[in-house]
Amino acid sequence: MSIKVLSPGLLTSIQDLGRYGYQKYGVIVSGGMDTYALRLANLLVGNKEGEATLEMTLMGPSLLLEADLLLAITGGDLSPTINGESVPQGRPVLVRKGSVLKFGALKSGCRSYLAVRGGYDIPEVMGSKSTYLRAKIGGYQGRALLQGDILPVRCSSPLSLAESLEKTMGSRSFAFPSWYVGKSYVSETSQEYKVRVIPNSQFPLFSPDSRKQLFQQPFQVTTQSDRMGYRLSGASLQLTEPLEMVSEAVALGTIQVPPDGNPIILLADRQTVGGYPKIAQVAGADISTVAQIKPGSRIWFVEISLAEAERLYAAREADIQRITITVQSQLAGITT
């Protein structure tokens, strides 16, 4: 079982939930940018939620499915089609061998995830299948996908749902159930997004004006944004007085401010340590929203307390737990 890459898209790479435990050796975490969408994609095909998926960015690939496959697409809407026919997101889709899954124009979001039943059969490196692009390790030969690549897919026991889809499929090239899970982000037509942040312990070191500016005007996501981080432009944020700072660890969602005053939100491919002052920390529950914001859009930061961030985090996990239960019962053929 395999998938052949007919055209690779802009940046298509294998990502799972990341490589943990090696940051102290300078090995970055990597992993999916929108881990909520990534987990959903896996749940929808009955995989473990942390299985490797294909992360597709802005412009998706064209893929030839060389076997009957059960797959799921989540996250940003890259107008996926199978043999030219529109295919829905957020649900398991059984697809016939020989079909072409093609991603087209970006309709909303920024990144889309493709999970296949059984997962991509590639080796783990340091406990993860995520592609660490700069060090060229993990994923598919340590790099983004290229034309002609063949992605092996692991065999897995058939799901009851796939069997019933098979029966209703007839001569069509794909079939899907009448239920789906909602999008991982709120698509905004205004191109403006609210992102909740917790002030960092270095927040008071910024000038009173900069501290106000952070919440009183929007910041634009520039085109110099990538998997490592989003570079923002807006008010120039400045410290009250120069700070002698030595490098220390950074985290997913850390907003650091280099001397030019333009904040950077650190994301999946962030380095393990950084030497710039940190003004705030994006709430874990809003990281997936950030991951779906494309360059040119604007972010309004909203201040929340640590207690609120913890509550949001727990609420998000509870949501995923609910989805897991309902989806698993649907996949096992327990219908309501």
């Binding site: 957020g90 009448s178 239920w179 789906y180 899970v181 989805i323 309902t326 989806v327 649907q330 309501t336």
Partner: peptide, 11 residues
């Protein structure tokens, strides 16, 4: 119809 985060289409 949404039940426990799952959306069911009605035809």
């Amino acid at each position: 119809l949404e039940a426990m985060k799952l959306f069911n289409e009605v035809v």
